[in-house]
Design a binder for these strands. Structure first.
Length: 302
DNA sequence: AAGGACTACAACCGCCTATAC
DNA sequence: AGTATAGGCGGTTGTAGTCCT
């Protein structure tokens, strides 16, 4: 009757994952793709619950994850979306490629909440705090009134009034306007200005900036050969800019996982993990994009 | 230098929904 | 149709690292 149990809880390991366990899980997923999580621990030789494996992969090991603090733009987007969606972290995360719900939830609880309170904004309601508000006061109903999202810049305060209908769009529009005015809106933009690169601030990569390695030389590979040769890890790939390709708008993770050889994935991961912090070169994990020209692939950027 | 307080975040817990049987 | 589980989700906790006194 019903499904089989997810795992036998007796004798399963808990607590922090070791490097050895990570390696086993990573190797298994890269070799077999994501399948039935119940079977993963057994097949991968792990004494973990399938659920634990899924969380570890989703929140930490997935090569397409961004690392480091959320950029200013991402933070602003989170605030916008939270004002509309509340604590629906997975929904919020779906608007931030490379970020997990857990990561956003943690960032909200540890950084954004404090910033908002410091600026006199109730993080629950996104309304100005009463002068003597305490945390114990019941939250007001949210997402029904005009929202005020706040972007913090330490000393200088900037309040952004967000259109209730299209909060994210307004953020994106603001960013586009800022870009037009040459105002840096993300670390990626600001790199041109101050040349300060920090591995804790891996920037939001934008569609037109993503490099697509492909086995055969692409018709338009010339536009990005310099960066491509750095990021392809000498694996025999040439690259092209994503914007040069006629690509669909959604991304089938499993399909692409199954289409890529292990060697290509591993060299991409090695390169990503060994990103030189002294360099301005942005190394993004290539594996979700590493497909030949002929293969059908999809990518969902927003 | 020691140790207590604070911070950040990985990981777990428990609930809910979808779905296999 | 009913039952039980997988997977997803949000809330909470544990702990390592950092800061402060």
């Amino acid at each position: 009757m019903g499904r089989q149990p997810c795992c036998d809880k007796v004798g399963l390991k808990k607590g922090p994952w070791t490097a050895e366990e990570d390696k086993k899980l990573m190797n298994f997923i890269l070799t077999n793709g994501q399948c039935c999580w119940r079977a993963v621990p057994k097949l991968a030789g792990l004494l973990r619950c399938g659920k634990s494996c899924r969380l570890r992969w989703t929140n930490y090991l997935r090569p397409d994850l961004k690392r480091g603090l959320l950029s200013e733009y991402e933070e602003k987007t989170v605030i916008d979306l939270h004002s509309q969606l509340g604590n629906r972290w997975s929904k919020i995360a779906s608007h931030l490629p490379g970020r997990t719900d857990n990561e956003i939830k943690n960032h909200w609880n540890t950084h954004i909440k404090k910033k908002l309170r410091k600026m006199g904004i109730d993080p629950l309601t996104h309304q100005p705090l009463p002068t003597n508000t305490t945390e114990n006061e019941p939250p007001k109903p949210q997402a029904a009134q005009p929202e005020v999202a706040v972007q913090n810049k330490e000393e200088e305060e900037e309040v952004v009034v967000v259109d209730n209908d299209t909060p994210l769009q307004s953020t994106i529009t603001d960013q586009a306007k800022d870009r037009d005015k040459n105002i840096p809106t993300s670390p990626f933009d600001s790199m041109d200005v101050n040349n300060d690169f920090c591995i804790d601030e891996i920037p939001v990569i934008e569609p037109h900036e993503i490099l697509i390695p492909c086995e055969n030389s692409s018709p338009s590979s010339s536009s990005s050969s310099a960066a491509a040769s750095s990021s392809s890890g000498g694996g025999g790939f040439s690259s092209t800019l994503l914007e040069d390709l006629d690509f669909p708008t959604t991304f089938d993770y499993n399909e692409i996982m199954n289409s890529i050889s292990d060697d290509d994935l591993i060299s991409s991961l090695d390169l990503y993990n060994n990103c030189d912090s002294n360099s301005n070169l942005m190394v993004e994990p290539l594996f979700p994009l590493m497909v030949s020209d002929e293969e059908f692939w999809k990518f969902d950027f927003l």
